[in-house]
Nucleic acid binder design. Structure first.
Lengths: 191, 191
DNA sequence: TATTTTAGTAACGTTAGTGTCACTTTGATG
DNA sequence: CATCAAAGTGACACTAACGTTACTAAAATA
């Protein structure tokens, strides 16, 4: 290496995440990022040809981390334990859902690197889906999950409910416990 | 009137909705809209000073419609019936959640009209919240809702679950029935 | 210490969106 | 049919983001 960088990849990616969540795909710019990192806009082009390449690279990083932690689910034998683990995991990365949606706005691009990145993202998605459908399969084997509810909805509930805004600042543990309660046994009493 | 408009307010608003959902707040432009309506960009400035004013006006229109239909909830006396009505209603406007989030990106603006529009939107939100908290109160009175679950989460579940993507194209009635089932009694069997 | 390699800068032309304005078009009304 | 008011146009100046490039700065190494 000839000269030290003024910023770390970690700083770059966490700023990327922040701005993507605030401004969305179209509102995300290299200038914004450059200012945050105290470098000039031009410097960023040393590493990424355009924002699609940067964003997809960041998303690969983010999904790899998620996948890494997701595979720990295998350590749990019983469905209930897998469920608890999954809920905890997802609550540590509540923005991932939204980021995936934002990243999907990246259209078919002429850039070769972006194409490759998008393919890698698809692979990562599929790996994630593998773990999740194993989880559902286990639940069905153990007869823990109601038979008539489609797989996609079971996973959808688990992933979507973390995005419910906690407007009134209910304490985290209480909030999570309530969500797990509803997903498991509903919000209705049996009266 | 001196001359007929080339577009109706309905066309304008439905295009606005479409582009907002596709491109988000920052990606929404007057040119996009003008092309869709087969008019020049300049013509739009006859009606709205800028995109914030257009978007807030559109959102007022959208929320008024929702509120209009929401107040029918009063016609139902029993909590269960109100619940059914609410679920059906929300499923007819699944994008409203996302649109509200997008509209919230509009920052404090110097334009007086935009300020007024934003205030009107706040009012509409509060009216909506009134109906919804009446609904929750009824559920608690009838002892239909579990006591330990916070209000915000009950409403959050109802509003958030409509955004779960039905990737595998489960038929609508089946999908809605399953969502109601989970919200009411959970996805777990009692074994 | 001279060389090489990488990091970063600053300026350029380009493109796309913004808001404005003088102008033309259209159709209803006196 | 002349007039007027609203609808619509197209050009203008401006700004912000884009991607490129010739350049300078810094640090490792030979």
């Amino acid at each position: 290496m000839a000269r030290e960088r003024k910023f770390s990849q970690d700083e770059l990616f966490s700023a990327t995440k922040e701005f993507l969540l605030i401004h969305g795909y179209e509102g995300f710019t290299f200038l914004l990022l450059a200012e945050r990192l105290h470098i000039s806009r031009g410097a960023l082009y040393k590493y990424y040809d355009n924002k699609d390449e940067l964003i997809t690279s960041y998303m690969i990083h983010e999904l790899k981390q998620l996948l890494n932690r997701l595979q720990e689910v295998k350590q749990y034998v019983r469905f209930d334990d897998q469920f608890d683990f999954l809920m905890e995991l997802i609550f540590t990365m509540p923005e991932v859902q939204q980021l995936i949606i934002i990243a999907n706005q990246i259209s078919a691009n002429t850039n070769e690197k972006v194409k490759n990145n998008k393919e890698e993202l698809t692979q990562l998605h599929m790996s994630m889906y593998q773990y999740l459908s194993d989880f559902v399969r286990l639940g069905r084997q153990e007869k823990k999950l109601k038979e008539n509810i489609p797989d996609g909805l079971i996973l959808g509930f688990i992933f979507q409910t973390i995005a419910i805004p906690n407007h009134y600042g209910v304490p985290h543990t209480e909030w999570v416990a309530s969500i797990k309660e509803i997903i498991s046994h509903g919000m209705f009493t049996n009266k």
